[in-house]
Design a binder for these strands. Structure first.
Length: 106
DNA sequence: AAGGTGACTGTCA
DNA sequence: CTGACAGCCACCT
């Protein structure tokens, strides 16, 4: 597994409860600011294997942008359970619930 | 091994 | 505000 992959996994696991991070943000912290799509792809493939809090990752627009409608619902529900406000249109206020981190300390 | 793909993103109209 | 476009790049087939 590439360093990018392992780093990304660590970072995702480091997302605090009640907070959300964006794909681009994670990619950036992992050292590949231009690979948010890989982050997304990874969640899909490794979220279960590595027990990742995939539900805490959303798009930079602050909306849940997962393809699978069912998982989308689940994600919104999980977030609400952590205290994150998710609107009926799956919007999250990044100003308030965004994960603030300047750089990731591995 | 070569090519396709996506849970993205910033920019422009 | 919405929508279209084009980079982007690791992973899968």
């Amino acid at each position: 597994m590439s360093e990018f992959t392992s780093k990304t996994i660590k970072i995702i696991k480091a997302i605090p409860e009640g907070r959300v991070a964006t794909y681009g943000q994670i990619a950036g912290l992992a050292g590949h600011p231009r690979a948010p799509r890989q982050v997304a792809g990874m969640l899909k493939r490794y979220s279960e294997k590595y027990n990742l809090p995939w539900h805490r990752v959303i798009s930079s627009k602050g909306i849940v942008s997962i393809k699978d409608p069912l998982a989308k619902l689940e994600q919104a529900e999980r977030l609400r359970e952590e205290g994150v406000e998710v609107s009926t249109s799956f919007e999250v206020d990044l100003k308030r619930f965004g994960w603030k981190v300047d750089r990731f300390d591995a």
